[in-house]
Simulated assay, not measured.
Amino acid sequence: MRIAAIEDLHADAGWRTYSFLKVTTDDGIVGWSEYSENYGSAGLTGVIRAIAAQLVGVDPRPVEKITAMLYAQTRQAPGGVNAQAIAAIENALLDVKAKGLGVRVCELFGGPVRERLPLYWSHCGTYRVTYPELCGVPPVTSLDDVKALGREVRAKGYGSLKTNILRFDGGAAALHMPGFARGGEGPEINVDRGLTRAVDRLLGAFREGAGEDAGLHLDLNFNFRTEGYIRMARAIEDHDPTWVEIDLFEPDALAHIRRQVRTPIASGESLFGRRGFLPYLAAGAMDVAIVDVVWNGLAESLKIAAMADAYEINVAPHNFYGHLSTAISAHFSAAVPNFRIMEIDVDDCRWRDEFYLNPPVIRDGHLHLPTGPGWGVEVNEAAVRARSGRR
């Protein structure tokens, strides 16, 4: 078996682009991965093309050997788009290898620990504030709408949800995300009493709608500095959140925050590889390690999870992409013993399902691990090409 062709495809998904890597072998096996060039990874497709060109004619099955070689070749510029490019290639090669053997990808790593994965409804309310017309869902314009959304989460069987900072105190609903330079805020990313009150009311509305037993997660992203994270986490403690998600590139600062607050801290979605996670684990900086399997590749993600396990830390995948990425994250979640919960976007562009021949099965707030070979979710190439587009 040899790699005959490597191709990238891109589809218009409303406010973002879905990107896919297709690896075809000389005996007709097709392996897929999904990656994201959005949110700070501009140019990733060009990096994938440059790195992958040398693999045409190569046997795709020794995946560990190939990824080790690619990491060695990019050693002087680690992380970032190089790591994401290698991850996209790795994930597609794992799909090829598993399909060639007629097994699921997780079987390559000892088989699943679990077949049914609890989910939390991610970006709950966020897309209904920012893109309701593209999602085809009712807009969220008030705290009463937040309560109604909480009731919808409960009615659809989800036991947990995660929201971003949504404000309803200035007239129109607004997403507060200065850490990503959105909304016109400056680089100082400070917190004030008005903001803590707004978030307190937001979580109170979700709690009223979703119920006392619902798991509430708050994603603070990169939106504050150390002092601001402490103030915000303390302001919402009475809502008993499952975790506060914080992104920081300073492990000692995150460890300091964790010591100052009662709410568990989840972090890591922007970290690369075992070397990226090690100082955070060694500093005792997180209660849950968030691992992006699309950015790191499944094989590397499993190594991160094994390292976290040695520090008595559970892991959860960072997953806000399309259905194939959900399947990739599901194989990670199924294979590790120290799994916490899996992220999924319920709201998305209205036509998301068109891009996949067999979207994952979700019932009662749980994802059922696909049963087909490889990832178990196949890309509808014709539909992707019909909506071809890149941003």
Rank of each mutant, 00 (worst) to 15 (best):
I265F: 11
E7M: 08
L220E: 05
R49M: 02
Q73S: 14
N319Y: 11
D26H: 01
V336G: 02
A266V: 05
R151P: 06
L55T: 08
G297M: 10
R225S: 12
T126P: 00
D95R: 05
T67G: 11
R259P: 12
I89W: 11
G372W: 09
R391I: 10
D145G: 07
R16V: 00
L281W: 07
D364I: 00
D347S: 13
C135W: 08
A383L: 01
A285C: 06
E152L: 14
I189R: 14
E312Y: 13
Y127E: 10
L108W: 04
E250A: 11
Q260A: 15
G376I: 02
I48D: 08
R61Y: 12
V377E: 09
A50Q: 13
A53N: 03
T226F: 00
A266I: 02
R262V: 10
W32F: 09
G365V: 04
A198H: 06
F222C: 06
E64Q: 14
K303H: 13
G365T: 02
A334E: 03
G184V: 10
R352S: 08
F272R: 08
N164S: 09
P251E: 09
G297Q: 07
N319I: 05
F206C: 03
L302W: 03
L367W: 07
R274F: 00
R363H: 13
E312S: 12
S160A: 15
F249E: 08
I89L: 15
V56G: 01
G79M: 07
N314A: 04
V103D: 00
E300D: 13
T130S: 06
H368D: 04
F109I: 03
E237W: 01
L369F: 11
V103W: 00
E381H: 11
G365Q: 04
L278D: 06
A383T: 00
Y127T: 07
A306I: 01
M342P: 11
I165C: 07
